[in-house]
Amino acid sequence: MSTPTAHLVAEGVSIWLDDLSRDRIVTGNLADLIATRNVSGITTNPTIFAGAIGSGSQAYSGQVGVLANRGATADEAIFEITTDDVRAAADVFRHVYDDTNGVDGRVSIEVSPDLAYDTAATIAQAKELWAKVDRPNIHVKIPATQAGLAAITETIGAGISVNVTLIFSLERYAAVIDAYLAGLEQAQAAGYDLSGIHSVASFFVSRVDTEVDKRLTAIGTEEAAGLKSLAGVANARLAYELFEREFATDRAKALTDAGGNVQRPLWASTGVKDPALPDTLYVTELVAPGTVNTMPEKTLEATFDHGVIAGDTVTGAYAGAHEVFDRLAGVGVDFADVTQLLEDEGVSKFITSWHELQATVKNALEAAQSGR
């Protein structure tokens, strides 16, 4: 019997898990999710690694001991531990990568959030991560800050696959697509095989509703109340409209005709924050061919259990999505301010998680050195 996750994949949506830990790899849980939940990729970020390494799992203790004996710093240990996890996960997904001709079977690893506003350092670390993991089926995650745009171009131009993260606005998404196409043009000029370079553009969804709904509550009118929990899905649908338009241009077609891949839209932050909303909202309302939905495990299990997949829920809904934004502007929501705030907060939260991860690993190294 077909499951909702299988139905979702049949509609052209790739399911990626938004979580990684060594325990998932060594216990076979990750392989099981591939087999039973149609998971075809995985994404990580500093928050996820902070949770995994700080959980007290014994899966990391042996490596921490070795690194402590070697005199590794916290940053050196994080680099070794996280790239080992990503490499092992990439090996688990390798058959998916091979079966999909490189489209799926992808594992993402993020450059340090401390570098989000430093173009040159981001490029350097992206190349370092790519070389260290040494697997063709990874994505290096680069945030879509202004400084990140040039880094995206240079990294793609060096033949490295990229997951562009923390996209909130259509304006920034258009700049991300431009950066990707410029990167493909650089790669082509340098003689790279364009077919081996892949990218996704991670458009965040639930965080948009959280911030917009807070502003709608403050406005306090009946009209404002009627717009709650509509902005996130509408914004993502308009992103897909932009994706269709930009990859139909002569510039994009010249690159895809030369073997280049489109940069697939990825729906991120798809766990529902408001308990009053359906727990599969950001899955069932964003079904469109050639997309990725990266889900927390709770959302994945909810989709598998009771998700109702009713075909494409995006491409026929553009007019309604534009209307939502006209109405938001009409009640006084400054969406440009919303998206800039969300980008700033997103970088800040990842930096905080990164520093928590550094502190956790530093403490673990010190404990191992003292024999505790």
Rank of each mutant, 00 (worst) to 15 (best):
V292W: 00
L328D: 06
D279S: 09
T291G: 04
H355P: 06
T270E: 13
R327T: 12
P278I: 07
E343L: 15
A276N: 14
Y318M: 06
L342Y: 03
H355Y: 08
V287P: 02
H355D: 15
A317Q: 13
S353Y: 03
P296I: 05
D305W: 00
V331K: 01
T294F: 07
V324T: 14
V314P: 04
L286N: 00
D274L: 03
Q358S: 07
M295G: 06
E301C: 00
K362L: 14
F350T: 06
G320H: 06
A329Q: 12
R327M: 10
E356G: 10
T315V: 09
D279E: 14
G290V: 04
F350W: 06
G307S: 10
E297A: 09
I351Q: 13
L357K: 00
T299V: 10
T270L: 02
H322M: 10
T315S: 14
I351L: 13
T303V: 14
D305N: 13
V308L: 13
G307Q: 06
F335Q: 11
L266G: 02
P278C: 12
L266H: 01
V308H: 10
T270H: 08
A319S: 13
A319R: 07
A276C: 06
K362C: 09
V292T: 04
T284F: 03
T360Y: 00
G346N: 12
G346V: 01
S348N: 13
T294D: 05
D334A: 04
D305P: 00
T299H: 03
M295D: 01
E356Y: 00
W354T: 09
T339W: 02
A310I: 07
W354I: 01
I351N: 02
A302K: 06
A288C: 10
V333M: 08
L266S: 10
H355K: 13
Q340D: 15
F304S: 13
I351S: 09
E285R: 11
D326L: 09
L357I: 10
T280E: 08
A336H: 09
N293T: 13
V287M: 05
P265E: 05
E301H: 06
D312S: 09
T339P: 01
T291S: 14
E345P: 02
T291L: 03
E345H: 08
L277Q: 15
A329T: 13
D305Q: 12
D274V: 08
V338W: 03
V347L: 09
G316N: 08
V324I: 15
D326T: 14
T352M: 08
L341E: 15
V308P: 08
T313Q: 15
E343P: 03
A319P: 01
E356H: 08
G311L: 05
G332E: 12
I351K: 11
V272F: 05
G290D: 14
A329F: 06
A302Y: 00
R327H: 11
S353C: 07
E285T: 12
T339D: 08
N293F: 04
G271F: 02
T313S: 15
S269Y: 01
H306W: 03
K349M: 12
E345L: 13
L266C: 11
K349H: 09
D337F: 04
H355R: 14
F325A: 05
